[in-house]
Amino acid sequence: MSEELYANLAIFVLSLLVGFEVMSKIPSTLQTPMMSGANAIHGVVVVGAFAIAAEANNWLLYVLTFFAALFAAINVAGGYTVTDRMLGMFDRKPAKKEEDKK
């Protein structure tokens, strides 16, 4: 086994353990935002889209690059925005509508 593969495998296993550890006992209120937040994080696959762009040199590969970039960008932009919107609702104070009604 090459040193590089060993290092990557070690990182993989340790990150799994961190993931298990950091996620214990989530209040149910936060489960949906948490899922959405984790969903945004795997948008990091966008880094992979950049990386393959450096190797693309024919039409088929350009098309694959395009789709990788498109999909990953939707994942990142949408994921963070919708998570932020959801979480924003928890600290929003009741609006000033009460005065409007009276």
């Binding site: 593969l5 799994l16 993931g19 996620m23 994080i41 795997h42 880094v47």
Partner: peptide
Amino acid sequence: AVAFAGFVINNQVLIIAGALVGAAGTIL
């Protein structure tokens, strides 16, 4: 899947973030 993509392009941030989401998502 993202973590495995990290192995493929040899990029650790994909491996860490992917494994983190994989594990956290499983617990969730």
